[in-house]
């Protein structure tokens, strides 16, 4: 979309353009957001602008778990109510959120920032695996929970990390793979179903 051809003032079409670049936002949504901001009080726009700028200016990676944070170490690593003997390994910072929402996990995290994907040229040294090993060496960690995504690359990454950690004698677990709540057996794929059968539990 060329802003010059939009039947709107330049600043408006510029903002529409920018919104349009965001994931999940099409031209219509971009227009709606823009006109919403136009009518809202000025401080609302300023808050939004400041929030956007500050995620780029004030954030960095936590030196312990490599999560994105504004304080180093991050809130999760410094929280003394959390159990630092359990480390949950996730692919991306965004994966921590759904795990936290469950309120079932009170350990700490380690973010890999990617998965092994040989055909894209992403190898273990491109991920934060070395930091994980440094962190585990000589620590009091008793359990490592592998929470990479249950797809081909995620599984390969898990297998690789498992191989590296095994000599340390730490308990290694993998998130169970099974049926989604509210789902339907009829639509379950074979891999999921067979894993669900393997991991069935006594009632």
């Amino acid at each position: 979309m060329n802003p010059d051809f939009l039947p709107a003032a330049k600043p408006i079409s510029r903002l529409i353009e920018e919104f349009n670049k965001l994931p999940g936002i099409g031209p219509k949504t971009a227009q709606r957001l823009t006109y919403h901001l136009l009518q809202a009080p000025a401080e609302k726009s300023r808050d939004l602008a400041e929030a956007i700028i500050s995620i780029k200016q004030n954030l960095r990676l936590c030196s312990i778990c490599l999560n994105i944070t504004d304080t180093d170490p991050c809130n999760l690593c410094t929280d003394e109510t959390r159990d630092s003997t359990k480390i949950c390994i996730v692919e991306e910072p965004i994966d921590i959120m759904p795990l936290e929402r469950t309120k079932k996990y009170r350990g700490v995290y380690h973010v890999l920032h990617g998965v092994i994907s040989p055909s894209d040229g992403i190898k273990p040294e491109d991920l934060h695996i070395r930091e994980l090993l440094d962190r585990l060496g000589g620590s009091n960690v008793t359990e490592v929970i592998l929470a990479t995504n249950p797809n081909a690359e995620g599984e390969a990454t898990s297998l690789y990390i498992q191989r590296l950690i095994a000599p340390l004698g730490i308990r290694i677990t993998r998130l169970a793979r099974g049926l989604p709540f509210g789902g339907d057996l009829e639509y379950a794929d074979d891999v999921t179903l067979s894993r669900a059968l393997e991991g069935r539990q006594e009632l």
């Binding site: 081909a152 599984e155 074979d190 891999v191 067979s194």
Partner: peptide, 22 residues
């Protein structure tokens, strides 16, 4: 799915061979 080649997925060497083949 017709075949999910489960033994390949459980083995780091084999899945890597699979990546190479594809």
């Amino acid at each position: 799915a017709i075949n999910n080649f489960m033994p390949i997925r459980d083995n780091l060497e084999l899945i890597s061979c699979g990546f190479y083949i594809s």
